[in-house]
């Protein structure tokens, strides 16, 4: 299987505070990988290191076999290959829904206006927001905003989608609509790396689940193994705590 992203011996510190320690893992084409773990375990930092929103302190990030931490590598071109969905949506406040999905295509990918609009509409339909193209972000609910944010990322037609706790800032009744869209994307064969607290989603949709604790990958494997038969003591403890809450 072709691996799209591979992380080797990745480490990240903020000052003397070591967030990630010697992380090794990869994402293969067409795979859905969910990263789970307690708050502060470094999940989000790992995701942000992969698209260089945080600069790793050490190690390598390989994209299709090439190290993107190389000085010569074009960071901006690389980022267009990764779609990022944030916890806080981060829609561009000065653009309406359609504009949010078009601006990157126009100004970064240099697509024509007609092509950009067609692509944007295609993905807005996928997330069910094609009726709201004139709305400004401030006029949308959280779930709607997140679906537009997903369409914005998809409009760049990336190789991998990164989701950074996409439902954590949503009201409970809106979590479902976003997860439904994500599930649909997963079934369409999109490569996805999802940091999530939604254990139901992870167990149902993921091809592989990665459990992180204190900056280390403690355990990874297919969801059946992680959720039903975890080997690691920390994994077991974490799942006991989380599943009890649900």
């Amino acid at each position: 299987m072709e691996n799209i992203i591979e992380v080797q011996h990745l480490s990240k510190s903020f000052g003397s505070n070591e967030i990630l320690k010697d992380i090794n893992f990869s994402v293969n084409k067409g795979e859905v990988v969910c990263i789970i773990g307690a708050s502060g375990s470094g999940k989000s930092t790992l995701l942000r290191c992969i698209n260089l929103l945080e600069k790793p302190t050490g190690g390598k990030v390989l994209y299709k076999g090439r190290n993107i931490l190389d000085d010569k590598h074009d960071v901006y071109a690389y980022r267009t290959k990764l779609g990022m969905v944030f916890q806080q949506f981060n829609l561009f406040n000065n653009h309406d829904v359609l504009g949010n999905c078009m601006i990157g295509q126009l100004k970064v990918l240099k697509r024509s206006k007609a092509e950009a609009e067609e692509t944007a509409m295609k993905y807005l339909k996928v997330v069910g927001m094609d009726q709201y193209i004139n709305a400004k972000p401030r006029q949308l609910s959280g779930g709607q905003k997140q679906r537009v944010a997903i369409a914005r990322a998809l409009s760049m037609e990336p190789d991998v989608m990164l989701f950074d706790e996409p439902t954590s800032a949503l009201d409970p009744e809106m979590v479902g609509e976003v997860l439904a869209v994500m599930k649909e994307l997963a079934e369409s064969g999109l490569t996805m790396l999802v940091v999530t607290h939604e254990m139901g989603f992870a167990s149902e949709v993921a091809d592989r689940v990665v459990f992180m604790d204190k900056g280390i990958i403690e355990e990874e494997g297919p969801p059946e193994k992680i959720f039903l038969n975890p080997e690691n003591e920390r994994t077991r403890e974490f799942l006991r705590r989380v599943l009890k809450q649900e």
Binding site: M84, F86, G104, V108, M156
Partner: peptide, 23 residues
């Protein structure tokens, strides 16, 4: 301006100049 606006612009491949200009 919220840091998230900068991050979202960077994440779709905009450099600093484009981020400032369009967002």
């Amino acid at each position: 301006i919220d840091k998230g606006q900068f991050e979202a612009a960077h994440a779709i491949g905009m450099n600093h100049r484009k981020t400032m200009l369009y967002v």
